[in-house]
């Protein structure tokens, strides 16, 4: 166990991570290291354990075994420090239907101690293109608009590490490319991104590195340089097909 804080190499580092639900292992010994300023796309079929992995990395779920460091902080010992450094988009939006977009962002901004909050709210809402709907109740937003707002919510406190679970679901073509641009800007600014997706092309185009999770194990991991989309699709099909 190396607790040397001066020696942070990875933004996300998981070792021997496992998680079980009543004896059924959803994660079986995950080893994953992601550099600062890197964008990693994680693929895998339904039930592979992608969401479970994100939940463990974001301190929502307790791992059965293994060690995880996020920005050099241990998720068990220093969960609050970890939470401060991560932005999360998940299957659910984390938004309150009865409150307006502005009130939702204001609430979360206060919880994160975001400095200069009013200006920041305007900034993020503009980034996702919802500035005209700022004063509307979230309950009347369409699915895609809610997803956009949940992305705005995730970047509100300008976290160095983003963990995104299928962030493109429900987004139209235009919003999806806006999201790509947003994530690219973040990565260019030395932010780290780990995202899961079922959209092979979209994830492939965005990521520096690709990983495939099948039945709770990372069965493939490689940087993109050596790959083209066709080869990767073949690899994916082989990995996923091999499970049954």
């Amino acid at each position: 166990m190396s607790d040397d804080i001066n020696d942070i190499k990875y933004a996300i580092e998981a070792k021997g991570l496992s998680k079980s639900f009543g004896g059924l292992f959803a994660l079986k010994g995950i080893d994953l290291s992601i550099n600062e300023g890197e964008c990693v796309a994680l693929f895998g079929p339904n039930g592979a354990g992608k969401t479970t992995l994100i939940k463990v990395l974001t301190t929502l779920s307790r791992p059965a075994n293994g060690k995880v460091l996020i920005a050099g902080e241990d998720i068990k010992k220093n969960a609050v420090a970890v939470r401060r450094r991560i932005g999360v988009v998940s299957h659910q939006t984390f938004l309150y239907d009865n409150l307006t977009a502005y009130e939702n962002l204001k609430f979360y901004g206060k919880m994160y101690d975001v400095p200069d909050l009013e200006q920041r709210i305007v900034d993020v809402i503009t980034k996702v293109g919802l500035e005209s709907r700022l004063r509307d109740r979230v309950g009347i937003f369409s699915r895609g608009m809610q997803q956009r707002l949940s992305i705005a919510r995730a970047i509100l406190h300008d976290p160095p590490i983003m963990l995104l679970d299928e962030p493109e679901t429900g987004l139209d073509e235009q919003a999806r490319s806006t999201l790509s641009e947003l994530l690219k800007t973040l990565v260019a600014g030395n932010r780290t991104v780990l995202l899961t997706t079922h959209n092979l092309e979209w994830g492939f185009a965005l990521a520096d590195r690709l990983a495939i999770l099948v039945k709770g194990k990372i069965v493939y991991e490689d940087s993109k340089q050596s790959l083209d989309m066709t080869t990767f699709r073949e690899t994916y099909n082989r990995c996923v097909g091999a499970r049954s």
Binding site: T59, R83, R84, V88, F94, Y108, M111, D113, R153
Partner: peptide
């Protein structure tokens, strides 16, 4: 979960 992700 959104609440649980807050740094508190």
């Amino acid at each position: 979960e959104g609440l649980m992700l807050c740094p508190v």
